[in-house]
Structures are given as C-alpha cells and as structure tokens.
C-alpha cells in the first residue's frame, strides 16, 4: 500500500484553519483518495489553538498524524507554526504566515511571545517558506481571503497538481458565495506565486 500523505494545518480559532483543511480534503477526495480530517480543537472558538490533521491516500486508518510524520506543515500564525514543528517528518517543508497574534496571557505579562518565531523555525533547519499572507489578502481588499492565499501557497507542495486544489476552492465558492469566486481565484494565484518566488 502506498504511504499516506499527512498534512498538518495550524493556527488559532477564527482564522479559517478548519475550512482550509476541509477544502484540501475535498481536493484529495475529488481525486478518489480516501481521506480523514480531524481537529484537536477543544475550546478553539474562544481563541485557543486549532490544529487540523488531514491524511489522504489509498486507505486511511488512524486519523491523527504522529510526531515526526507530517509531510507538510502549514501555519496561519507564526508562533503556532513553531509550536507544531516537532510534528514534521525530517526534511519536510513548512509554510507559514508571518502574522503574530498574541493571546491575553501574553498581553497581561504572564508569558512571552517569542521574539522571532520565523527565525527559530529557520534555525531548526526545516525547509521554510514564510510570508505575510495578510498583506496579499489586503491587496484584494479583504482580510478573510488570507486562508485562500495560504491554500494557493501550499498548492505546489502537494502530491497532486495545484490546479486540483484551485478547482476545489473554486467549487466551494461557486456553490456558497458565487460573488466571491473570482477574487478567491486571484487570491489563490497570488499566494501560489508568492510561495513560488520564495523557493530557493
């Protein structure tokens, strides 16, 4: 049996982590893969940590990705990406948004936010692509396009053509918000281009 592909997407409640992973799953399902997706969400609605596990392949049994077994880590927030770096298979790539969102326990001085989480990731020696997804989303006038930008950015790291993921994003908006379809396509492409420019 072919090895399954394991993708871990992390961030915090409200960033669209679960939706992005869902779209990624839809792309894998469209290709006929078996897939399982799960969250260790807990009370994520209240600003907590969200981490979505997606596994796809010929047949998926256990839904969770174990430490050292993620083939790709996608982080929507810089410190969260660092938090989950130990999940990576040695040599597997990381894609992270550089935005920093600090919780009240940091604001009230109980804990510190790392000075340079992206630098720490780089120091770990992982193949890293880091960029400001907010900046790109705002170029299209809507901060909520951030997760489509992230999907575009991860689309060349998948074991299937980027266009399949692009179609999955497109299908979702065609069905739910047709008026947002075009801008999401463009946001996806912009994310993809940005990530490609960072390679090497």
């Amino acid at each position: 049996m072919q090895k399954n592909t394991n993708i871990l997407v992390c961030g915090i409640g409200g960033q669209g982590v679960m939706t992005a992973t869902e779209i990624l799953a839809e792309a894998a399902l469209a290709l006929g893969f078996d897939a399982k997706k799960t969250e260790v969400a807990g009370m994520s609605q209240r600003g907590g940590v969200v981490v979505s596990h997606l596994r796809f392949g010929e047949r998926v049994l256990s839904p969770q990705i174990a430490q050292g077994e993620a083939d790709l880590l996608v982080g929507f927030e810089a410190a969260e990406t660092l938090r989950w770096a130990h999940m990576l298979r040695p040599g597997a790539p990381v894609l992270t948004n550089t935005s920093r969102l600090s919780p009240p326990v940091v604001e009230c001085g109980v804990f510190d936010y790392p000075d340079d989480p992206v630098g720490q990731l780089r120091a770990l020696g992982v193949p890293l692509q880091a960029f400001d997804a907010a900046e790109i989303a705002l170029e299209f006038g809507d901060i909520r396009l951030g997760n489509t930008v992230m999907l575009g950015a991860m689309s060349d790291h998948l074991p299937f053509p980027a266009e399949v993921l692009r179609d999955a994003v497109d299908a979702r908006f065609a069905q739910r918000k047709p008026e947002k379809r075009d801008v999401n396509r463009r946001a996806f492409d912009a994310g993809r281009e940005r990530a490609a420019a960072l390679v090497g």
């Binding site: 915090i12 409640g13 807990g42 009370m43 994520s44 609605q45 209240r46 600003g47 907590g48 940590v49 174990a66 430490q67 050292g68 077994e69 410190a79 969260e80 660092l82 938090r83 770096a85 130990h86 999940m87 990576l88 298979r89 040695p90 919780p103 009240p104 326990v105 940091v106 804990f111 510190d112 936010y113 790392p114 989480p117 720490q120 770990l124 992982v126």
Partner: peptide, 18 residues
C-alpha cells in the same frame, strides 16, 4: 525511536472570553 524535532517551548494559548 521517533525521528523528529523536539517540541518547541511556546507560550500556552488557553481559551479566552470573546
């Protein structure tokens, strides 16, 4: 043995009120 990076120390992010 697990071939993986060690877990990084990052502040906790407990659920908070809205």
């Amino acid at each position: 043995e697990v071939d993986a990076l060690p877990a990084q120390q990052v502040f906790p992010r407990p659920p908070t009120m809205c």
